[in-house]
Design a protein around this nucleic acid. Structure first.
Lengths: 207, 207
DNA sequence: GTCTATACCGCGATAGAC
DNA sequence: GTCTATCGCGGTATAGAC
């Protein structure tokens, strides 16, 4: 996630910029972030930053590309683990929850991108995730046909699930105020994860 | 929702500005929206707009205030209707779903505000919604104690539910790409609503 | 109430010295 | 690779004529 240039002790300036840009874009959005903010966070001047990245847009593009490839890799791993029925669903669910908990900045950027509909880049976000989506639909419908899962609309279930899982992390400043506590501390994250698992289990299984 | 100055045929310039600002802030966010965009949408110049609102910040504040009071009113109505058990939950759920479907621009602004943690205003969003939240927690826990609803963490259930319901509307540009269709057309919205009801019913009831 | 004109600032980006 | 200096643009906001 954080860029390690092989086994150097200090990351390259380029990678420092990518890390700081990720943080700023997640926190304040594309429009709300200035190159000055990022440069200041790294400890350099704006023109020095533009020596490493041709423009704000390409910098954002690189941040987003790294985000997508990191996530894809993790998702592929989780999906590859062999399991069946509810166990499989729980495994993927847990993988997503762990992933999101470890990379909250990614989550917030994704949410902003989904909100804006991908204005900032040519990248078609839903297009990239479409294979995962279609795969999951097929799996869920198979389990429903087999009588393992409760019959629900698989496509809407996935969209609802995506919203249910993502929101806790993307809207954590808001959640803080609702629960009068830091939503992103270890215990609360753990509680949230167990709740989501229980919730989906309860909805999908008649045990 | 849309401002009607008593029963005039054409709304006041001030209300036209509020409507256009709502649209722009929802679509492109606070930072992404310029006063030029709003003024152009109304058909006036930027200085004319600033004759009606002292600054961009106060304009945003007024838009948000109207949003909150509109929603509160609707929510209060829905909660006031007498019902018990699952019927009550379904009633409130449907009220929220209808409300969100009718006011997608509100939803997107709310989501942006939750993401940003209320930077743009002094308004503490979670503080305003806190009474509803605490009320709902009490109700859910009562139903769980009575054995009507499946035992789940009521607070997390509400947060998860909030995410599940809001996301379809806030991220509709993204959903479009997943389902290869306009998420906000009548049929898809109706399908989504029925799905959410079924999903929660399945999770909360053992019928 | 709306306009033109203008002041002022911060932004992204470039040129060129070191 | 980093810096200072600068350009050009678009942003918010104000002044003053109509």
């Amino acid at each position: 996630m954080s860029n390690a240039t092989s086994s150097e002790s200090s990351p390259s300036t380029r990678d420092q910029i990518l890390d700081e840009a990720l943080k700023c874009f997640a926190e304040k959005g594309y429009e709300g972030t200035s190159l000055n903010d990022i440069a200041a966070g790294v400890g350099i001047r704006r023109p020095s930053l533009l020596h490493h990245f041709a423009s704000k847009e390409t910098l954002y593009g690189d941040v987003f590309e790294r985000l997508l490839s990191d996530w894809m890799e993790r998702l592929d791993e989780a999906i590859a683990v062999p399991a069946t029925g509810w166990d499989k669903a729980e495994l993927v669910l847990r993988a997503c929850l762990d992933l999101f908990a470890e990379t909250p900045d990614y989550v917030r950027i994704m949410r902003r991108e989904a909100l804006d509909g991908g204005i900032h880049l040519g990248i078609d976000l839903s297009g990239v995730l479409r294979p995962f989506f279609d795969n999951a639909v097929t799996y869920l419908e198979g389990q429903m046909d087999a009588g393992v899962f409760t019959r629900l609309d698989a496509r809407h279930l996935l969209i609802t699930g995506y919203g249910a899982i993502l929101t806790y992390f993307s809207d954590s400043p808001f959640v803080d105020g609702l629960i009068d506590d830091n939503a992103m501390n270890t215990k609360n994250i753990s509680d949230h994860q167990e709740h989501v698992i229980q919730f989906f289990r309860s909805a999908l299984l008649r045990s």
